[in-house]
């Protein structure tokens, strides 16, 4: 739905401006496709369109894991779980907390006005981790499981292609590059990825810190 909405938007925008698209394949340093990476092109257009997005809680996980939004987007936080959640963020881009009671008819909403990474946690479920990447551009896309994505953007405005992924941690890694002119890009990361930061959900009992040992 979102994709179709974006596509529609891009089509609209494209018709308005110098519409261009970019086919991207993202590979890690091992040459494997990397999914869930956010790619965006800046600078974006001066005017932003109000938009909405959804960060759902399903099976005690944030869904999606990574949610890129444009500044000014209102994100709703529905709760698909039969339990309560206490979603919070201490990120400077957006500090908030939301007590999500089970299956409320109207999901609570939060408008993100500042660009930046908002790390989501649940005060009840420590292992829940989610990201809302608030971008100052409407031209962003996420890689699929093939590591592929397509960006539609206004070539007149956007000059630089940026990348973000929770596992990219190498400080030497180039996190941005110039937008290629030919419309296709295979981006292979140079640094090793760090492991998935999402903590595992405990099985039966709370995870003990250590075993007993003298």
């Amino acid at each position: 739905m979102l994709k179709s909405a974006l596509a529609l938007l891009l089509v609209l925008l494209g018709t308005l401006a110098q519409a261009q698209n970019l086919e991207i394949v993202l590979l890690d340093n091992q040459g494997k496709p990397l999914s869930d990476a956010v790619l965006w092109i800046e600078p974006g257009p001066a005017q932003s369109q109000p938009a909405t997005a959804v960060m759902d809680q399903q099976k005690r996980q944030f869904t999606p894991y990574v949610l890129p939004v444009q500044v000014g987007t209102t994100v709703s936080f529905p709760n698909a779980d039969p339990i309560n959640h206490h979603v919070y963020s201490f990120s400077p881009a957006k500090r908030f907390e939301l007590r999500l009671h089970q299956q409320k008819a109207a999901p609570q909403e939060m408008r993100f006005d500042q660009p930046g990474l908002v790390t989501l946690g649940c005060n009840i479920h420590d292992w829940m981790l989610g990201f809302i990447l608030v971008l100052d551009t409407p031209w962003f896309a996420q890689t699929d499981s093939q590591g592929k994505t397509r960006l539609d953007f206004d070539a007149a405005a956007g000059q630089t292609l940026h990348i973000w992924h929770p596992r990219i941690a190498d400080p030497q890694e180039a996190m941005s590059r110039a937008v290629p002119s030919d419309g296709t890009l295979t981006w292979q990361l140079t640094g090793a990825l760090k492991r998935d930061p999402r903590p595992k959900e405990p099985k039966a009992r709370p995870m003990a810190k250590d075993d007993y040992a003298s």
Partner: peptide, 9 residues
């Protein structure tokens, strides 16, 4: 102190 893990505060 994580906010949340692995976000070390």
């Amino acid at each position: 102190i994580f906010a949340p893990r692995p976000n070390l505060m």
